[in-house]
């Protein structure tokens, strides 16, 4: 797992290519699930949109945001969960639990990197068949506010990629912890709750009251929905946009490093059960 440059190790480009391809193939093997996601994400986005539209009745501004900005935020923040939302935690702890990790280790890849690219392949496919269709219909029918500047799009794209890396990094740690604590169901639930509340996928995090706000904004989860949605709604001036991107990047890298160490520890302790 160390010294990835050692002769005979799989080049990262091959790990990336094969990982993305596998992630893509696995999504396409479950096309029906993509449809289910499309419908359920539509319902939640619509619900949030209706809620905020009602709140803004007869008002120009609520907590410093216009109605158009707020509805755009809540819809975008939720729609992008279909891109970055990963199940790598359940996959990984399942592989450990069923002893299939013994099979995964028979490949010359870096297992952590492989899973990252595999989930990126999953996310890329989900983008095409779930996230973009969601954007299309919500943007058209709910009168969301499109970015005014062209550069918002590429910056939003980069922010999304980093949101995915953070989401992956966190889920990976949950996966390793599930295996080591032998409690996958409990942690999966905890993860869903944490992300739901702290990622900003339901409301902008600056809506949290007093003491909570700085805490919530200091955690890595804000980089999942809060940052990309704020970039999309152009809440952040373009000459300052590098700041939230830098924070996202720092968290992504930190989680990546910790994730590698956690995996190494788990593999040293692993007892492959049965047969």
């Amino acid at each position: 797992m160390s010294a990835s440059s050692r002769a005979g190790d799989l080049p990262a480009s091959v790990t990336a290519r094969t990982g993305c391809r596998l992630g893509m193939q696995l999504v396409l093997a479950y096309r029906f699930e993509a449809l289910v996601q499309l419908v359920s994400a539509s319902v939640v986005a619509l619900l949030n949109w209706s809620l905020w539209t009602a709140i803004y009745q007869g008002r120009d501004q609520v907590v410093g945001r216009s109605a158009a900005e707020m509805t755009t935020y809540v819809v975008v923040a939720w729609v992008i969960t279909t891109f970055y939302g990963t199940r790598v935690d359940q996959e990984l702890s399942g592989r450990f639990r069923e002893g299939l990790i013994a099979v995964d280790l028979l490949r010359p890849w870096d297992l952590h990197l492989h899973h990252y690219f595999r989930d990126l392949g999953r996310a890329g496919t989900a983008l095409l068949i779930t996230t973009l269709p969601l954007f299309a219909w919500t943007g058209g029918l709910l009168h969301l506010r499109a970015p005014r500047h062209w550069w918002t799009w590429p910056v939003f794209g980069i922010s999304l990629l980093l949101a995915h890396a953070i989401s992956f990094g966190f889920a990976w740690l949950v996966g390793v912890a599930s295996f080591r604590l032998r409690n996958a169901a409990g942690l999966a639930h905890l993860k869903a709750t944490v992300i739901g509340v702290l990622s900003g996928s339901l409301i902008p995090l600056d809506l949290y009251p007093g003491v909570m706000r700085p805490i919530v904004l200091a955690l890595p989860f804000q980089g999942m929905s809060h940052t990309p949605a704020n970039i999309f709604t152009e809440r952040i001036p373009w000459d300052q946009v590098w700041q939230p991107l830098g924070v996202q990047l720092a968290w992504a890298v930190a989680l990546f490093i910790v994730g590698r160490r956690a995996l190494r520890g788990a593999l040293r302790a692993v007892v492959v059960q049965g047969g």
Binding site: M1, G8, D110
Partner: peptide, 16 residues
């Protein structure tokens, strides 16, 4: 491990 697995083929009868 990563170099080693290039030289071996493995079949676990109980897991695909």
């Amino acid at each position: 491990r990563r170099r080693h697995v290039r030289n071996i083929g493995v079949v676990y009868g109980q897991r695909t």
